[in-house]
């Protein structure tokens, strides 16, 4: 007896299902804006680019500039720092990457100054590898901004930048 009722849906059943489907779509359509509004808004997305004049940065100096609300380190590396960054065996690195892949000109290292662990700002010229040391949870980076020890999973990120002239870069 019950088999028969299952086998033959009537007009009422189709109406129920259609109504339920419409309601589901409507709820989904309503929930989406409620969640999506939390994503970065148009004003945040409007990518500001930052220009940095390199002439004022002496060898050995790190200058911090703000880009997209985050600090970017522009480091004028000394010959010794370049050498130590280039002469590392890649297999000792937790996140292996050659120094040449991370810089456009060996003198200038440009990295986003946000620790890849939990987002603190590392301190320059500190730590075992003389690159950066993160005060929050003790990650150390070398003079190429690569992670060397501590809980951070990856190297400091290199942002998109271009040399506008020999002495000026544009980040973003």
């Amino acid at each position: 007896m019950s088999d028969e009722t299952i086998a033959q849906p009537n007009r009422r059943d189709i109406l129920y299902i259609a109504t339920g489907a419409m309601a589901t779509v409507a709820v989904g359509g309503m929930v989406w804006p409620l969640l999506e509004q939390m994503n970065p808004d148009a004003s945040t997305l409007a990518l500001a680019s930052t220009e940095v004049d390199l002439t004022a940065i002496i060898p050995g100096q790190i200058v911090t500039v703000k880009w997209r609300g985050k600090p970017v380190f522009v480091r004028h590396r000394t010959a010794a720092e370049i050498a130590s960054a280039e002469n590392v065996q890649l297999d000792v690195l937790p996140d292996p990457e050659a120094d040449s892949k991370r810089v456009q000109k060996p003198d200038w290292l440009v990295v986003i100054g946000v620790c890849t662990h939990l987002g603190c700002i590392p301190i320059g010229h500190e730590g075992e590898f003389d690159g950066w040391f993160c005060p929050c949870h003790g990650s150390t980076y070398d003079t190429s901004g690569r992670i060397r020890s501590g809980p951070a999973p990856s190297n400091l990120e290199v942002p998109k930048y271009t040399f506008v002239t020999d002495t000026k870069i544009k980040i973003g």
């Binding site: 939390m38 994503n39 970065p40 808004d41 945040t44 997209r68 609300g69 985050k70 946000v114 662990h117 939990l118 987002g119």
Partner: peptide
């Protein structure tokens, strides 16, 4: 940034929570 540890979608979730690329 704890949420950025989630594989693949971590960074998107963090940006969603923050409403930007950093706390602002």
């Amino acid at each position: 940034n704890l949420f950025s540890a989630i594989p693949v979608v971590g960074n998107s979730i963090t940006a969603w929570l923050l409403g930007g690329y950093s706390v602002d």
